[in-house]
Design a protein around this nucleic acid. Sequence first.
RNA 1: GCCCGCUUGGCGGAAUUGGUAGACGCAACGGACUUAAAAUCCGUUGUCCGUAAGGGCGUGCCGGUUCGAGUCCGGCAGCGGGCACCA
Length: 858
Amino acid sequence: MTSESTATRYNVKETESKWQKRWDETGCFNVEIDPEKPKYYVLEMFPYPSGRIHMGHVRNYTMGDVVARYKRAQGFNVLHPMGWDAFGMPAENAAMEQGVHPGKWTYENIATMRSQLCKMGLALDWSRELATCHPGYYQNEQKMFLKFLEHDLVYRRRSWVNWDPVDNTVLANEQVIDGLGWRSGAAVERRELDQWFFRITDFSEELLEDLKQLERWPAKVRVMQENWIGRSEGMKVWFGLEGRDDRLQVFTTRHDTIFGATFCAISADHPLSSELAEGDADLTAFIEECRAIGTTEAALEKAEKRGYDTGLRARHPLIEGKTIPVFVANFVLMEYGTGAIYGCPAHDQRDLDFARKYDLDVIPVVIPADANPDEFEVADLAYTDDGVHANSEFINGLDLADAKEAVAVAIENVDIGQREINYRLRDWGVSRQRYWGCPIPIINCKDCGTVPAPEDDLPICLPDDIDFDQPGNPIDRHPTWKNVDCPKCGAAAERETDTLDTFVESSWYFSRFCSPRANEPVDTAAIEYWMPVDQYIGGIEHAILHLLYARFFTRAMKKCGYLDIAEPFEGLFTQGMVCHETYRSDDGEWLQPTQIESGSNGVLKRVEDGSPVQVGRSEKMSKSKKNVVDPEDIIATYGADTARWFMLSDSPPERDLKWTDAGIAGSWRFVNKLWRLVAENAHNEKMAEPSLFNKDLRAVRQQVHQTINGVTQDLEGFHFNRSVARIYELVNTLSNMKSVDAAEQWVLREGLETMVQLINPMMPHLAEELWQQLGNETPLFETRWPQADKSLMVQETVTIAVQIKGKLKATIELAHDVDQETAEATALAEPAVAAALEGKTVNRIIYVPNKIINVVHG
RNA sequence: GCCCGCUUGGCGGAAUUGGUAGACGCAACGGACUUAAAAUCCGUUGUCCGUAAGGGCGUGCCGGUUCGAGUCCGGCAGCGGGCACCA
């Protein structure tokens, strides 16, 4: 680079660190409660400290920062904090693989990532930084756990888990791949363990119902949560059992088909199954088989419907004298409904498959409206549509809804069942047999059972001296940690060695950010002022679990009196992923983008030896496919502003963004273009507004004010790519301006200052620097958002399209809001229009002011 | 299987309540400046016919509503996502 070009080139490094230092020193983004100002709480999903930030983080935090800076300029008291979702398995994996303590590993990663985030120039209140693995955080989680216990929001029960017999550990469902442990490769077993659960199902209806209020959530996320909660209305019905005193309770949502019931089926885990299995070796074996399959989804999908005839017969509740067989079936789930069903093969595909296999009756009881009841038959496809009931006594002829109602009334009248609403949602199991998590503050006593740890004992800290040289839970192996006296009876007892699911920490961190150093989980004044989060931003992958747990947890906290809101996130935005092309060598090895270069003919090849490269489709950046670009490299080369600008350009934020070298280079060119544009014109002194502007200048001012208006609306609506396009257009106009006379210079300055203010949320370092160059002493972070002058936005003349029968024939230039007569006359006088209408009768003319004239002829 | 969403040039994408399709960016091509390169600037770029003027066709496909459809309605296809023995 020559000395001449350094003068006209933007010194990114110097400028960015200068402004970062300035923001840091003034503490301008550290906020306090200010009752005089409206608050705005913007939050991006906090990161897991995995080691280094990736492009997904850059995109996420750039969006949040745009909102934060924009809202701040609008006069809001903006809370924009950052923290670390710091518990979790990767730290333990690192401990096992590298022998480094999970805490050390985590805090080192945090230090690295914090410094990387600082280089992005984010308007964050770092004074509120928190890490969930810090006792200051998790002791409050322990307090709340105890409070939840008091309010019956937590309970313990035996529950099945995926057990890896080699690693001696419990596996999450996603760690079981094809029935094998992801790490050990051992066949996973089902085991029953005592586990802690949060009563999220107490809130099923509320969590479902309140989704409707979340108007600023993506519809997609609401639908996903709705399906996950899975409300269904049905009935519980008792079936008597021949030769026994007890009855079998089944759940159904199609009680209208009860006259078509030809068998009952119960889960292998049903108490009746266990009872019957005693002394029945075949049934015992069958139950074992069901359980063996029961762990993986893939296996479930392929498993055929199988059953075991218990020999028991159930009495049909509405047909006197009719009995049907009772099977144990592998497709009935104990966790849903009552763990027992009746089968109506004609109208349920699963039941039909089962009936065909075991040669059970298939009785159609609902038939299409136009079908003949005597002839209608069900072959291999169950009839599940609405229709007319038949073979069904008192509901014959009724449609589905009426038949359901009639059956419900009949069953309730004889007191053999009642209407019931069921949910797919299960209680949230939070026990993890792991070290790097929040210890559950419970003491297990032989005599007193589970005893809450005394609050004075909190925090119950994790032991530091642990080792990972053998499989299993190191906290459980620790020689002394768990030994403690029972707080109730004083006898020797043991601490709970399970830790909490890490989703618990992320279920309330946003509340903690309001008062991150408070002695209690939350400070009432702070939480009342700041909550709820006005805008939450994060990945769609958290659409269900994290967001549902957080909604539950907030309600649970409300029940315990910690806060007084139900919904934590008023607005939610889910951003798309950052993708990149994938590259492979001829022998199939994945290659990093840095290993690729473009040859002279434009064909990609390997840098090291020029060998050919297979270009794959663009996919989410991932280490395994090596299609990652390190944000640190990009920021070091082009600066944070360029990276931020590229993140916001082109792709709408909710869609995937394709990272390209050409794209980042384009942003870099734009940064330099702005720099030059301002540098060339900054010498123009500020002066008084001229009283007159010529037409061209009026048009420029119009665009300036339209851009303010448009960018403002776009930022409000999360259309960052549209803002970017508008700013490009404005810059194109400004750079084409001549600035010879005073009026021109004044308008150019107005345009440049406006433009600089508008780019500030997106490229804050450059904006501050240019703002200063333009002679402003007050920094942008203390400057209000520009106001569009509506009177200047109105166009003096408009271009109107002239159509004939909807086809464009000409465009005409007319004064804004011109009357219809003038417009029509001008349109018809247009040569192309006149020619096309020659010899034709005009039937009708449609005039939409300032937009279009459509001439309809015969 | 069920539920959602998407489909616009070579590419990413624009297009208020139905009203000039392709803004803006990228890529490509042509040119200027330069000893040369980089950088920068100017121009062209949906497609087909035509030397041109001009015209035809164009928003996944088929049909409908309308003076007018990328936009609304019905059907179909393709792609993506979520859930999945939930009785």
